[in-house]
Design a protein around this nucleic acid. Structure first.
Lengths: 253, 253
DNA sequence: GTCATTTGCTGACCCAGATCAAGAATTCTC
DNA sequence: GAGAATTCTTGATCTGGGTCAGCAAATGAC
């Protein structure tokens, strides 16, 4: 295993990579003993960056690893029978991609970089093996997958029941929460995806996304400058999403 | 544990319940050694039947078990901020309900019986413990959760991209596949959910569901008698869903 | 059995958001 | 940095499916 590790790995002497990684509290947010973190670190490969538009894996590829995003953004998508792309998710730093491949041993979606993106590759067979020895790691994997299931179900609610305004507001607040969780500004961030990709994801036409965003800006809910977004009126946005402000799960998508 | 087992458990002498269960190949379709199946069997509680409309668990209840449906049907749903119900899934015999509760230790949805329904309760802490000792069981749980993730993502595609005809056709073929998998007729079955529940699930108004079903019948794609459905023209239905007939994953929802 | 309630069907109308079109602003590329 | 290509915005128009309404059929309660 260690032979496949990249340069940076050899530079670190005694310290573990995972331990130093600013995402360690998020990627598999576990209360692991140092010794366990080291063992996890051993199986992880740090891959060279993907450039915008490059694939991490393609629908139909043999599944062997899950990936943690370290920097940048990925999208996952299906190609439908009529050849159009359907985006099923965006992945920000600290998030895990590829879990849906475990069942069939084949990735059921493609994953593509929206900008320059680096990932950690976590060979699944090794992770599974290690999870037998570290119960808290196993529990953590169950939790991450369970979380994905409930998040996706919230997304189903969004697609099935919400109108265009609610969809876009949910999307922006969801991104905001994810940035906040990793220590970035919750109110001001950059969209790494195009309007077209947002529309595709939310089940809306590009034009509708554009119009809604313009209207939000006109009503001073947000401030927009190209891909830069600033959320100005959180309470009003949350009202649109339809979530009580005291609710822990704000703007779930 | 064994103290909580019901009557039927004591009637069985040496044979395991899970071993005899006709769903064993589906519920956690594992190549478990007899000994392992017995151990799994030990932790499972067979609950008394739920009557139509009764809850298995409610949104917000503390999570402690997942449930395998033995007979009947369940639906899971959220209550939205405006008080309306959003159905996130239907569960047929052999399917597992409750996996989304692992992450937060609370069920994020409610589960309600659509008809008289029996389930096996699988206390999750015991299952997790046992999975440490039986790697193939652990792998199986990963697979079941992974499958749920990719199924839900197909559902997202359906909600985001398909029109009313495609949604209803996908729904019917998906049910057909699930019945077929458990050994029942793929072409002829009974819908345990109302038109309203189908519409809710598919993001359609009741009237639309009703009209589409009527039209399918008029065009001789299906034959309908109340809740009884017979799929007459599979190829045409699959064409509607937009899946090549040689594709393994037909009519994925 | 009878009455009440829920569930399903169908027609008439309407609107949110899709589609079409055409410029404006960005972003690639060399 | 000029030109090409893509992405974004905005307006005009169209339509799939939602809403409303009224009746029929099935199911439940007593």
């Amino acid at each position: 295993m260690s032979m496949t590790h990249t340069q940076s790995r050899f530079n670190s002497t005694l310290t573990s990579q995972c331990q130093n990684c600013s995402l360690s509290a998020l990627c598999l947010p576990i209360a692991l003993a140092d010794e366990d973190i080291n063992r996890l670190d051993q199986i992880i490969e740090r891959k060279k960056p993907l450039k915008k538009g490059e694939f991490l894996f393609r629908q139909g590829d043999t599944f062997d690893s899950v990936y943690a995003v370290r920097s940048g953004t990925l999208k996952t998508f299906n190609i439908t029978s009529v050849g159009e792309e359907q985006i099923t998710g965006f992945y920000c730093p600290s998030e895990l991609v590829g879990l849906s491949g475990i069942d069939s041993n084949v990735y059921p979606v493609s994953a593509k970089a929206l900008e320059t993106t680096t990932v950690c590759e976590i060979p699944f067979s090794h992770l599974e093996e290690l999870s037998s020895q570290i119960p808290s790691l196993k529990h953590q994997i169950f939790k991450v997958m369970s979380r994905k299931i409930s998040d996706d179900q919230q997304m189903m609610v969004l697609l099935g029941k919400k109108n265009a305004d609610e969809k876009v507001a949910s999307f922006l607040l969801n991104l905001s929460n994810r940035f906040k969780k990793r220590g970035y500004s919750a109110s001001s961030f950059r969209l790494s995806m195009s309007r077209g990709e947002i529309g595709n994801y939310l089940g809306l036409a590009v034009e509708t996304v554009s119009r809604v965003i313009t209207r939000f800006q006109k009503n001073e809910l947000i401030h927009v400058d190209g891909k830069e977004i600033e959320i100005v009126d959180f309470p009003e946005m949350q009202k649109l999403v339809g979530v009580a402000s005291d609710c822990g799960k704000i703007a779930n998508i």
